[in-house]
Computed example of a mutant assay.
Amino acid sequence: MPKIGILTFVNTLNYGAALQCHALYEYLNGMGFDVEVIDYNNKEIEGAYRLPSPQDIHSVKEFVTFPFRYMLRKKWKKNFNQYDTAMKSFHVKSISEINGRYDAVIVGSDQVWNLRLTGDDWSYYLSGVKNTKKISYAASFGNTNFSKKQIEKINQLLSTFNALSLREQQGVEFCESLGYSATQVLDPTLLQNTRFWAQQEKSIAHPERYVLVYAVGLKDKVLQEARKIAASIDAKIVYINSPYEGAMPIKGVKNVYALDPRQFVYLFMRASFVVTSSFHGVCFSLIGKKNFKAIIHSGVDNTNSRIVSLVENLGISHVLDLSSNETINYVDVDSKMKEKRCASQKFIQENI
Score class of each variant (00 low, 15 high):
Lys134Asp: 02
Gln111Ile: 07
Lys153Ala: 02
Gln111Lys: 08
Thr118Val: 04
Leu166Cys: 06
Phe161Lys: 02
Lys88Ile: 02
Lys88Leu: 06
Lys88Gly: 05
His91Ile: 02
Thr144Asn: 11
Ile95Tyr: 00
Asn143Tyr: 03
Gly119Lys: 08
Leu157Asn: 03
Tyr124Val: 09
Gln82Val: 14
Gln82Gly: 14
Ser94Tyr: 13
Lys153Pro: 00
Val92Ile: 08
Lys153Asp: 02
Glu152Arg: 12
Gln111Ser: 08
His91Arg: 09
Ala104Arg: 09
Phe141Tyr: 11
Asn99Ile: 11
Lys93Tyr: 14
Ile106Phe: 10
Asp121Tyr: 06
Asp110Tyr: 09
Ala163Ser: 11
Asn143Gly: 05
Ser147Glu: 14
Ile98Val: 13
Phe141Val: 03
Tyr83Gln: 02
Asn114Arg: 08
Gln156Asn: 10
Ile95Lys: 00
Phe146Ile: 08
Met87Ile: 05
Leu164Phe: 13
Asp110Glu: 13
Leu126Phe: 09
Gln82Ile: 12
Ser127Thr: 10
Asp84Trp: 08
Gln150Glu: 14
Lys130Asp: 15
Asp120Arg: 10
Ser109Arg: 00
Arg116Gln: 11
Lys134Gln: 06
Asn131Tyr: 15
Ala138Phe: 05
Ser123Trp: 01
Gly100Glu: 04
Ser159Trp: 05
Gly119Cys: 05
Lys130Thr: 15
Leu164Trp: 10
Phe90Asp: 07
Val129His: 02
Ala163Met: 08
Phe90Val: 08
Lys130Trp: 12
Arg116Gly: 11
Ile98Arg: 00
Tyr137Met: 05
Asp110Arg: 04
Ser94Trp: 14
Lys134Arg: 11
Ile151Lys: 00
Asn145Ile: 10
Tyr102Leu: 05
Lys130Glu: 14
Phe146Asn: 06
Lys130Met: 11
